[in-house]
Every structure is written in structure tokens, then in C-alpha cells.
């Protein structure tokens, strides 16, 4: 998948006045593979909605989202499964981790599907991001910041053309998000993927080709 195009997309829940000034809602925009995008907005402007639409979790919007030329709303169930396993990876704002599994199992449950990383590679990522001591700890016992890093590792355990980060560093201090960013940059470059970073305004440690106001 090379591009994601948004043609006059507008969430059903937003009125015209709420989206005035947005560079994405009700506009035509194209995200291309290989580029890095910062999507900044205040709370409540629809960052998570945007990623939900692209991830095909919701379709309560007008306009159209095209993956290359395929309309997102026409994707079959199997195509969505394929999209989420091989083309788009998303770090959810709410993590969507499983509290009854350990940190490692949370990553494995994704990797088992894709067989993208070896167990050793996963352990290295835990090491690199600074939570290797928590690898076998049950997730419910981890702090928000630690959970956030588990979610980031999980999102990297699949091939992707687009990596979407939905406020993925909100609970991390600068030291921690710096190491997380370098891990992400490595993986994005390895995949020659596009990176879409949604944040409240903080640019973190990425070099952007485009900065877009939502």
C-alpha cells in the first residue's frame, strides 16, 4: 500500500463550525509511504477518530478514505484483517492491552499472528526501551508509562506501510520517549513506511516532512 487518501472526510459527530480551520476534516489530503507526518491538535478535535477511521474500526464519517484506490468502507472482513496484520499498525491511545497476560505475552499474541519478530528480537526491544525487567510481569501490575511502551513494542511486531501513533508518549518523560522514538524510527525506516504522529503539539524526536493541524 502506497498512499492513504482522505477525500472530504468529516466525522458525523462534528458540526461544520467545529472543524473550521482543520487541514484534514473536509479537505483532500494524501499520506504517502516514506514520509513522516505530525498531526497536532487540541483535545477533542478528533485525533483518535481519524485513526479509528483509517484503521477501519469506525465508519461514522462522510467523504471517503482510499487505500491506494480501494475505498475503506468497501473492505471485506478478511481485507480488514489483512490490513491490520500487514499494512497499518496503530498504537492506541488506550493501549488495548490484555491485563491478564504478561508484558511479553501481550506482544506475543500479536507476533504469533504475523511471525514478524523472533522472541530474541522482542526481548531486545524490551531492553532498548528500558522495561526488560518487566518482561514477565503481569500487565495489570505495570505503570501507565510501562504499558505504553509495551503497546509500542507490540505495534512494531508486524510488517506495516503506515505506523499510526495516537499520543503514544503521553506518559513518558523525555529520556524514555527519546529511546522509544529511536526504536520507532529504526523500524519505520526498515519498513520504508510512513509515520503518522498524533500529538497535542509536542513534536517528540521525529523529523517531519509535513506538519498538519487537525
Amino acid at each position: 500500500m502506497k498512499t492513504i487518501k482522505l477525500n472530504t472526510v468529516k466525522p458525523d459527530i462534528f458540526s461544520e463550525s467545529e472543524i473550521s480551520g482543520s487541514e484534514i476534516w473536509h479537505k483532500n489530503i494524501c499520506f504517502e509511504k516514506g514520509n513522516t507526518y505530525l498531526i497536532s491538535a487540541e483535545s477533542g478535535k478528533g485525533k483518535s477518530s481519524l485513526f479509528d477511521f483509517i484503521y477501519c474500526r469506525r465508519n461514522d464519517y462522510s467523504g471517503e478514505i482510499l487505500f491506494d484506490e480501494q475505498n475503506a468502507k468497501t473492505l471485506s472482513y478478511t481485507q480488514k484483517k489483512e490490513l491490520r496484520s500487514n499494512h497499518i499498525s496503530l498504537v492506541f491511545q488506550g493501549f488495548r492491552l490484555f491485563s491478564e497476560l504478561t508484558a511479553m505475552e501481550n506482544v506475543e499474541i500479536k507476533n504469533r499472528l504475523t511471525n514478524h519478530k523472533t522472541k530474541k528480537q522482542i526481548a531486545e526491544m524490551f531492553e532498548q526501551i528500558g522495561i526488560s525487567q518487566k518482561i514477565d510481569t503481569q500487565l495489570s501490575l505495570l505503570s501507565f508509562g510501562q504499558k505504553q511502551r509495551v503497546a509500542i513494542i507490540r505495534s512494531l511486531c508486524q510488517p506495516f506501510d503506515f505506523l499510526l501513533l495516537d499520543e503514544a508518549f503521553s506518559h513518558l518523560d523525555e529520556t524514555n520517549y527519546t529511546t522509544a522514538c529511536s526504536l520507532i524510527i529504526d523500524q519505520v525506516e526498515a519498513n520504508n513506511a510512513a509515520l503518522l504522529v498524533a500529538s497535542l503539539g509536542e513534536p517528540y524526536k521525529f523529523k517531519y516532512n509535513h506538519k498538519i493541524l487537525l
Binding site: 484503521y55 474500526r57 472482513y77 478478511t78 484483517k81 489483512e82 491490520r84 496484520s85 496503530l90 492506541f92 488495548r96 492491552l97 490484555f98 499474541i109 500479536k110 499472528l113 504475523t114 508486524q158
Partner: peptide
């Protein structure tokens, strides 16, 4: 919720 999360990870129904 777990079911939905698994599906969002790319698991089939």
C-alpha cells in the same frame, strides 16, 4: 472488549 481487541490486532473471528 478482549474479543474486540483481538480482532483489532488482526485475529479472525
Amino acid at each position: 472488549e478482549k474479543l474486540e481487541n483481538l480482532i483489532l490486532l488482526g485475529y479472525s473471528r
